[in-house]
Amino acid sequence: MRHLHTSVHESIEHLDQVSIVKRDAARAIVVSGEDILLLYTERYHDYTLPGGGIDDGEDKIAGLVRELEEETGAQNIHGIKPYGIYEEFRPWYRDDADVIHMISYCYTCKIDRELGETRYEDYEIKNGMKAVWMNIHEAIAHNEQTIAQSPKKGMSIERETFLLRQVAKELL
């Protein structure tokens, strides 16, 4: 799979002599015309691609399908194709490491336009997460405004906005 980008959080001065935990994630790119399936998160006031961490021993495609079904209620997931890898190094606020090395494996796929029931985790419910079909250009503009103005923004918004711009440029 092609490498799209590597990002190092501004607070990380160097990666030597720090403990790093690695986490793989799978992210879905589902486009219908100029609409894209996204997750809106009220807590961070942003739009993100559906997806998340791959469980130990889980195949990347299986993780993608599981996350897409859980977070969006997607049905009839098919036509899965590799799109690209986005790597990031961010501060990690747990005892087992200083930095997390997140590797996001992004895939395009097709689904039925109508979404079914979601199965959100408790923290996703508390964060006000919901699946939406959104015009990709409006989502990019919204995230750019959040980056520029909102104190609520999370660390993932830079990744997500980069990926949305890439998708708009290459797939529309």
Rank of each mutant, 00 (worst) to 15 (best):
N127S: 13
K126G: 12
C109M: 12
I140G: 01
N143W: 00
W92P: 01
D112K: 14
W92L: 10
A131D: 05
Y105C: 06
P91Q: 02
D95Y: 07
E117A: 14
A141R: 12
I111P: 00
H142N: 04
E114M: 12
R90W: 14
Q145E: 15
Y123Q: 08
N143F: 00
E138L: 15
W133M: 07
I111V: 10
P91D: 06
I103Q: 13
N143P: 08
E144T: 02
G128R: 03
H142P: 02
Y93W: 15
G116V: 13
T146V: 14
C109I: 03
C109R: 02
E124P: 06
I100E: 07
L115M: 11
R90C: 15
Y123T: 06
D96C: 07
T108E: 11
K126W: 12
I147C: 07
I140V: 09
K130N: 11
D98G: 08
D112Y: 05
H137W: 11
A97M: 02
H137C: 05
W133Q: 05
V99S: 04
R119E: 10
Y123W: 10
N135P: 14
D122T: 12
Y93M: 09
Y120W: 15
L115P: 03
E124S: 05
C109T: 04
I100Y: 03
R113L: 10
G116Y: 04
A97G: 05
L115V: 02
K130T: 09
I103L: 14
N135S: 13
H137G: 09
E88T: 07
M129F: 00
T118M: 14
T108R: 07
Y86M: 02
I103V: 14
T118I: 13
M129R: 10
Y86W: 14
A97W: 05
Y93Q: 11
A131S: 10
M134V: 12
Y107K: 03
L115F: 03
G116W: 05
K126M: 15
L115T: 06
H101Y: 08
Y105Q: 10
R90D: 11
D112F: 03
G116T: 01
G128V: 01
A139K: 07
G116M: 08
Q145L: 10
T108C: 07
K130P: 01
I140Q: 03
E121Y: 12
N135D: 11
E114V: 10
M134E: 12
W92F: 14
I111M: 05
